[in-house]
């Protein structure tokens, strides 16, 4: 059985996309977080830093708990083939994967089809999920990304195999490997919110709009080298915040 129907991108799709991309600009700002970047100066002036930080911490915790819960659901699917847990995951992730694929340029039908395919893969591959290595959201993102590239862009994405040639010893004994992956996810999200605008922008274009570094360079009319160095700087800051959190 297939739910495939790849029609041309309709007018409605375009309309939805425009509304949608306006919303997606807010993506890096947690909506439950009262501090949007533009508000920051005002907040500082009023010396409200502390309560604001407390609120922020609460919302971080809510995200972390949520992420932990979703990861537990995926473990249930993995270990017990639990259909109810799968249905919960579907409810949470199918619309999100659909939005992700849509935002990157597919039409609505295709986006929904790929969301279904992604969830089907989640079921099929659940036995490979290792909660010590990834949060559920990261694992599902990987599946969605790869499926989208295979189906839509016709450029495959190749997965690496960690079992390959284990002759090479792991000299990356950074303490970060010990961190709970769910906690890890919310730290990365917070670090993103603190990035300078120009770095956040290229991350948004790359991860949220699916532009290659070359395309970003053209779009922003900055040299390719600048795009790459902003990428490197952004990641450096994200890594630092993971280090700080220990």
């Amino acid at each position: 059985m297939s739910f495939a129907f790849y029609g041309p991108i309709s007018f409605m799709d375009q309309v939805v996309r425009e509304i949608f991309s306006a919303q997606s600009l807010k993506i890096f700002y947690n909506p439950s977080d009262p501090v949007l970047i533009s508000d920051r100066k005002a907040v500082k002036g009023q010396n409200l830093d502390k309560p604001v930080q407390d609120l922020k911490r609460q919302s971080d915790m809510a995200v972390a708990v949520d992420t932990t819960y979703l990861t537990e659901l995926l473990v249930k699917v993995s270990e017990e083939r639990d259909r109810d847990a799968f249905a919960c995951l579907f409810e949470h992730y199918a619309p999100r994967v659909k939005s992700y694929v849509f935002r990157l340029g597919s039409d609505e039908l295709m986006s929904e089809e790929l969301a279904q395919q992604t969830m089907l893969q989640v079921w099929r591959k659940a036995h490979l999920f290792d909660p010590a290595k990834a949060a559920a959201s990261t694992w599902i993102f990987r599946i969605a990304r790869n499926l989208r590239l295979d189906h839509y862009r016709k450029e495959r994405h190749f997965d690496y195999d960690e079992q390959d040639l284990s002759l090479i010893e792991d000299d990356s004994d950074s303490p970060e490997t010990e961190m709970d992956r769910n906690q890890h996810a919310s730290i990365v999200r917070n670090a993103l919110q603190r990035l300078p605008q120009e770095q956040m922008e290229i991350i948004r274009l790359s991860f949220y709009e699916g532009l290659s570094h070359g395309e970003i360079s053209e779009k922003l009319t900055v040299p390719l080298g600048t795009v790459k160095s902003r990428m490197r700087l952004a990641f450096k800051k994200i890594r630092q915040s993971l280090g700080d959190a220990l």
């Binding site: 997606s24 992420t67 619309p95 990834a134 990261t138 599902i140 890890h184 999200r189 991860f207 994200i238």
Partner: peptide, 17 residues
Amino acid sequence: EQMETIGAGSLESEALL
């Protein structure tokens, strides 16, 4: 793996279809 967490963040965004 750390970078893919950024992508995971895009899945957890609030704008939903």
